[in-house]
Design a protein around this nucleic acid. Structure first.
Lengths: 197, 197
DNA sequence: GACAAAGCGGAACGATGTTCCGGATAGTAA
DNA sequence: TTACTATCCGGAACATCGTTCCGCTTTGTC
């Protein structure tokens, strides 16, 4: 079914066997290197671990960011799909929102430097950024809307701003003195409707 | 009075006239280039604008971060000093805290990419990061303590975490769809004591 | 088994931060 | 004024990136 290549999706059609093997090897190697050295690890290191030349990487993933996107794609997908599930299962929309944000934060924090790389507009990570937004923004928006409608949080918060803010807060999670989760929690508190005011 | 060089302080003793001239020219050029192209601007560009060679930069500022630190040093100082003034003048410690944070945010947002560069532990901006902390952390801590003591905000917030979080939120301020100030405001709301709970 | 298309490897390119060193220069002493 | 030296300067050179390019290899097919 369909190629839809260059960003890491299925692509099972009309490719040579060795090409497919290399693509898989690259994805596996990249995943390994990313957890070991962060998403800023040199391309050459990934190529070496996969046992291929640097040119081969660019044949499969036109740019560094495309490789990163491909590696994390299914995890992003899982996070997106969790949105509906949580909204249906939780006792209230706000609880669902909080749980979903927990998931989102976990995802960002456990990947070394993913949040760092995604926000800084340099390094051409725009593709990853866009994919993140395309997939997760609607989910976040739906959860926010539901919580607003339930009267649990104040209206007027832009989903994009919230997601970006949370993403930013997750930068530098390696520091033991800095726990992004506490600040995200603070943000959520600020989001809630206050009786006074 | 003392040299105390390599980070941009006074250093008026025992230096050749041309060396001093170049250092001044570099600071001026760097300041200009930073506002034009952000703090990530290439060293060579700054050297060219100052009319010196790249080696000359490293003679005066051992590393890129030292140059950045030197350029912004007096502004950081101003921000630090504003803390006491605001605390003495404002109607309440929380108001002072909010005003001070406004100042802090303004500082970060108006320098293109300053916040970006400072947080990411790569690029060896550790020196800048430390200077920021050394100078501003005590101020933030004092404001926080005062607000806690006045019963305006919840206790238990670590000053370092708060400053770092705010710094993180200021990353990517160039995006018209993302206003760090709104999120910082949300954070402050979350900090306030809630009647319920 | 031959052959074209697809794919591969790694040298090469351009950009970056940083180091190095031969030569210029400022300050000083005669 | 003229030497002389410690200091400083300029930019070539080095290491490390991401990325591109191209001659050679491999694969699938007839």
């Amino acid at each position: 079914m369909s190629s839809e290549n260059s960003t890491g999706r299925v692509s099972a059609r009309s490719k040579r066997a060795d090409a497919l093997r290399n693509q898989q090897a690259l994805l596996a190697a990249a995943a390994e290197v990313f957890v070991a050295s962060g998403v800023d690890a040199p391309i050459r290191q990934i190529a070496a671990k996969a046992g291929v030349g640097t040119g081969t990487i660019y044949r499969h993933f036109p740019t560094r960011a495309d490789l990163v996107t491909a590696v994390f794609r299914h995890q992003i997908e899982e996070c997106a799909e969790a949105g509906s599930v949580l909204l249906a299962a939780a006792d209230s929309p706000f609880i669902a929102l909080r749980q979903w944000i927990d998931l989102f934060v976990d995802f960002l924090v456990t990947k070394h430097g993913l949040a760092d790389a995604m926000q800084s507009d340099s390094s051409g990570f725009a593709a990853l950024h866009r994919y993140f937004l395309d997939r997760l923004l609607p989910v976040c928006a739906r959860l926010l809307d539901a919580a607003v409608e339930a009267g649990e949080i104040r209206a007027g918060t832009h989903p994009y701003e919230l997601m970006r803010g949370i993403g930013n807060l997750c930068i530098g999670g390696g520091d033991p003195q800095y726990d992004p989760r506490r600040l995200v929690e603070l943000l959520l508190c600020g989001l809630q409707r206050h009786p006074s005011e």
